[in-house]
Simulated assay, not measured.
Amino acid sequence: MNPRIPLVIDTDTAADDCFALLVGLLDPRADLLAVTMVAGNVGFDQQVHNALLTLELAGRLGEVPVHLGAREPLEREWRSASEVHGDGVGGLRRAETGHTTSDEHAADALVRLVREHRGELTIVAIGPLTNIALAVQRDPEFAANVGRLTVMGGSINGRGNITPAAEFNIYVDPEAAQIVFDAGFADLVVVPWDPTTLRDLVFDADAVARIAAQDTVLSRFFVRANQATFDFDLGAGLAGSTHPDSLSVLVSLDPTFAVSTGRYRVDVETVGELTRGATVFDWKPDAVPNALAIEAVDASRFFSYLSELLASEPTGAVVPEALA
Rank of each mutant, 00 (worst) to 15 (best):
D254Q: 09
S307K: 07
G240F: 13
A176H: 02
L61W: 04
G160E: 11
A30M: 06
R118K: 02
A15T: 11
H85M: 10
L53W: 04
G316P: 03
D27W: 07
V297D: 04
L92E: 04
E175C: 00
L247W: 06
V288I: 09
T196M: 14
S312N: 07
V280R: 09
F257I: 01
R210G: 14
L121K: 04
D187F: 05
D194W: 06
V66A: 06
V84I: 15
L238C: 10
T150A: 14
N2K: 11
A143F: 04
N226D: 15
I170Y: 08
E83R: 14
T197N: 08
S246M: 14
F222M: 10
G235T: 15
P6V: 03
R4N: 06
L22I: 10
L149K: 06
R79M: 09
S300P: 00
R4L: 00
L25N: 03
R148L: 04
D233K: 12
G86V: 07
A291P: 08
Q178R: 12
L253D: 14
R112M: 04
L121C: 06
F230G: 12
T100V: 11
A95H: 02
L323K: 00
V266S: 00
V319C: 06
L26P: 11
S82I: 02
E77T: 03
R71F: 07
V38Y: 01
G43M: 05
I9K: 03
A39C: 12
G237Q: 10
L247F: 13
L247T: 08
L32S: 09
I162N: 06
V297L: 07
T97C: 02
T315C: 01
D10L: 07
T315I: 03
D194N: 11
E321I: 02
E175W: 06
L57K: 03
P244E: 10
R94P: 08
A317L: 02
G316W: 02
D254H: 02
A58L: 13
R118G: 02
D187E: 14
I170P: 10
T261F: 01
G153F: 14
V8P: 02
G98C: 04
D16K: 11
L25K: 00
L129T: 12
D139M: 04
L250T: 06
L247Y: 10
S312L: 10
V151Q: 03
H99W: 10
G160F: 11
D231N: 15
S260Q: 09
A135T: 10
L238Y: 14
V38C: 12
E63S: 13
R224L: 14
G43L: 07
D182C: 04
T100F: 04
P3T: 15
N161K: 00
G91N: 10
L52S: 07
F257P: 03
G90I: 01
P3L: 14
P320K: 00
D298K: 00
V268P: 11
I170D: 11
A70M: 13
E56I: 01
A291D: 08
V8C: 03
V319E: 05
G90Q: 06
L129R: 14
P3N: 14
V35S: 00
P320Y: 01
A296T: 03
A205D: 15
V64N: 05
E273Y: 13
E269P: 00
A177M: 01
S304M: 03
G40C: 09
L21E: 15
G59C: 04
A109I: 05
D245C: 13
N157M: 00
S300Q: 04
R138K: 15
E295L: 08
